[in-house]
């Protein structure tokens, strides 16, 4: 039985089909990348799995449970953590408090939640920023706090939405290292969606490619990098942009 299984998932927005009959599965402990050109339906697929959208057809099965159409907080409680492309920074909660909110999912007591949150921050090497507000932090650190927050709910599957967007090459490299550590030391299954191929390739064990709402390829990164359909999909985009 697969860890996460997506079966014939379809989502259309008033006639515009964002996901068309997409099927794939992820095994426990894998790192899987989901790539595709702009408008390929990556984010929609992501949102259908975690529950922001209700799919129009198909099933999502997580650890043997049908979670199709579950609300985001329900999928989170089921063990699916996620990060966002952008953190909505507000001077309302500190980095530590953000992570505490995550820890509160399975912790009633504030002192305990704080202890757990500090552990997560320490794991990520973020002790230094614990008491700073998100607005006081650079984007790269904000994204790491977002990751820490998601880790604090103790997920078994972590879905990462464009984890490298807005980061410079050094920051990206650091993020990749961090993800590898999370995978290795916490044994969390990772599912990344990325627009930029260069980020996904070195870390993923398997890559799924979407184009025009459909899955066009799936396989190990080396294979995908030379897949004609994939190259065409990306090239097509470049031609369209006039490059």
């Amino acid at each position: 039985m697969a860890f996460l299984e997506v079966r014939n998932l379809t989502k259309d927005f008033g006639g515009i089909v964002a996901n068309n009959d997409v099927s794939f599965s992820i095994e426990e402990g894998e790192i899987v990348g989901l790539i595709g050109p702009n408008g390929a339906g990556k984010t929609t697929l992501f949102n259908c799995i975690v529950g922001y959208y209700r799919p129009d057809g198909g099933r999502v099965i997580f650890r043997g449970r049908d979670i199709t159409g579950w609300k985001p907080f329900q999928t989170a409680r089921e063990g699916i953590g996620r990060t966002f492309q952008l953190m909505r920074a507000a001077g309302e909660l500190t980095a530590l408090e953000h992570v505490m909110v995550g820890a509160f999912l399975h912790q009633e007591d504030r002192v305990e939640a704080e202890k757990e949150a500090r552990e997560v921050l320490a794991f990520m090497g973020l002790e230094g920023v614990a008491d700073l507000y998100l607005t006081e932090l650079p984007l790269a650190i904000q994204k790491q706090v977002g990751l820490a927050r998601a880790l604090a709910i103790k997920p078994v599957l972590l879905m990462l939405d464009e984890v490298a967007s807005g980061l410079n090459p050094t920051e990206t490299e650091e993020m990749v290292k961090l993800l590898k550590r999370i995978h290795r030391e916490k044994g969390i299954t990772l599912f990344l969606i990325e627009h930029v191929m260069e980020v996904v390739m070195p870390i993923s064990e398997r890559v799924i490619v979407l184009d025009g709402g459909m899955k066009i390829a799936e396989g190990p990164p080396e294979e995908i990098a030379h897949d004609e359909k994939v190259i065409k999909a990306y090239l097509g985009e470049k031609y369209a942009r006039g490059l």
Partner: peptide, 21 residues
Amino acid sequence: KLGYQLRMIKIDEEAAESLGI
């Protein structure tokens, strides 16, 4: 717990839901 959860909802409701709230 509720106090913190509410502030998270105020900042970003989508993110709050992703944390199981």
